[in-house]
């Protein structure tokens, strides 16, 4: 396997070819905020929190902003993850997310276990400068075990991807466009009526917010298991389960 060397925030780091800039940042012990990304799922570069500045080696072309999750590391790249401008953009992105949905942490199932809440802390958001939109969304509690509360959805599409890529059921997808986008079950029908759903709960496990939850969770009771896709993927690819011993 060939190895690439690049610079992340001034530190040289070596990563295997094919690694993403996010993985390279982690190798350099640099934490880049993410929301739509989840290890084990295909990256989509949608939330834009993991944007980093990249200079190509010696070509004098202007600095580019690229999503670390879905950009491959390259030899000699110079990556900056936390410039003042990036921090400003990230805070605005999180504020936009808070303003576009109905995120009321105080009584959310995911209070304390929410990646949106964490992201707000990470970007230093003490309030949203953007007016709240209060979209009229709905709750689908038709499934026997789970519930989806669209008010809390940030359209990261993790549920769509885990169901498609890991479970192979493709129960979820996105309907409509722009600010009307919405996660839909089956052919835009009540979740409980979708026969393809295996009730595996992976969508609930990976949801970064309280949008997907067990239907008996109340405020601050959600216990997410966001490491599951990575475990399942490595188990499948390496033919070895973590609970079977041996190094991960």
């Amino acid at each position: 396997m060939s190895v690439l060397t690049l610079w992340v925030d001034g530190a040289a780091v070596a990563v295997p070819a094919g690694a993403s800039l996010l993985e390279a940042s982690r190798a350099a012990n640099v934490e880049v905020p993410t929301l739509c990304h989840l290890d084990g799922l295909a990256p989509v570069g949608a939330c834009r929190l993991c944007l980093v500045e990249v200079d190509l080696p010696g070509d004098g072309s202007p600095t580019r902003l690229v999503p670390a999750c879905s950009t491959a590391a390259g030899e000699g790249l110079v990556v900056r993850t936390a410039t003042v401008q990036l921090q400003r953009f990230r805070r605005m992105a999180v504020e936009l997310l808070f303003a576009e949905g109905n995120h009321v942490c105080a009584f959310c199932v995911a209070n304390g276990a929410c990646e949106l809440q964490d992201a707000a802390v990470a970007v230093g958001m003490d309030h949203s400068r953007f007016p709240f939109q209060y979209p009229r969304r709905h709750v689908d509690a038709s499934h026997p075990h789970f519930v989806i509360d669209h008010h809390r959805c940030i359209l990261c599409t993790r549920c769509v991807r885990v169901c498609d890529e890991i479970e192979g059921a493709h129960v979820w997808d996105v309907a409509n466009r722009g600010s009307h986008c919405q996660i839909i079950a089956g052919l835009d029908q009540p979740w409980g009526t979708v026969e393809a759903c295996t009730s595996c709960g992976k969508c609930v496990d990976v949801c970064p917010t309280g949008a997907l939850a067990h239907n008996d969770d109340t405020t601050a009771e959600k216990r997410a298991a966001r490491e599951r896709p990575a475990l399942l993927r490595s188990a499948r690819e390496r033919q070895r389960w973590h609970n079977q011993g041996g190094p991960p």
């Binding site: 942490c105 230093g124 958001m125 003490d126």
Partner: peptide, 11 residues
């Protein structure tokens, strides 16, 4: 010192 979860977390 408005930074970190101890000062900023909503909810």
């Amino acid at each position: 010192p408005m930074q970190g979860a101890a000062m900023l977390r909503f909810g």
